[in-house]
Design a protein around this nucleic acid. Structure first.
Length: 154
DNA sequence: GAGTGCGCATGAT
DNA sequence: ATCATGCGCACTC
């Protein structure tokens, strides 16, 4: 078990790693202090690259634990949403033959926000819906990805 | 453990 | 505004 604290555009994040250095959890922290042990450098570098628009897909070992089979199905599908693209809770619900509300509940339990891009799942009325790192963060991430894509394809 | 009630990151009316 | 919805959790037995 190791952890790192990083300052990002969406706030200070705490990142947990297991003994094999896979990421197990990402969450907001009120400990507003940077703290990056050597073993975390590689991942933090990817994270920073993502935030400056130089990385669109994470390539780093993760360890998704403490989730149900249902949660895993939702997260697997979420992982396949392409960069800067969005789908609705309802869209995922239809794929899994469940209800959009249940999908929201599963995403709420996403242990790895940003890496598992649940910010790309929005409500069918076009508003963002909730986010464990805060709604402003969700809006920021969506806007960020769209503008990065735009710049790349000018 | 099985059963039930309830709170949601929703959606359709 | 109101209802249907599925899942997980917190209760009860």
């Amino acid at each position: 078990m190791y952890f790192a604290c990083v300052k990002t555009p969406v706030g200070f994040l705490e990142i947990l790693f297991d003994n094999s250095l896979a990421v197990t959890k990402i969450s907001l922290t009120n400990l507003e202090k940077t703290c990056i042990p050597g073993i975390a450098l590689n991942f933090v570098e990817q994270l920073n690259a993502y935030f400056v628009g130089k990385l669109s897909e994470f390539n780093y070992p993760v360890n998704i634990q403490n989730v149900s089979e249902f949660d895993r199905a939702v997260l697997d599908l979420t992982l396949k949403i392409p960069y800067a693209h969005t789908v609705t809770y309802n869209w995922i619900a239809n794929k899994l033959n469940t209800s959009p509300r249940a999908v929201g509940q599963a995403l709420k339990r996403n242990p790895l926000p940003i890496v598992i891009p649940c910010h790309r799942v929005i409500k069918s009325d076009g508003t963002t819906g909730g986010y464990s790192l805060g709604i402003e963060a969700k809006q920021w991430l969506i806007k960020h990805e769209k503008s990065v894509l735009l710049i790349k394809s000018y």
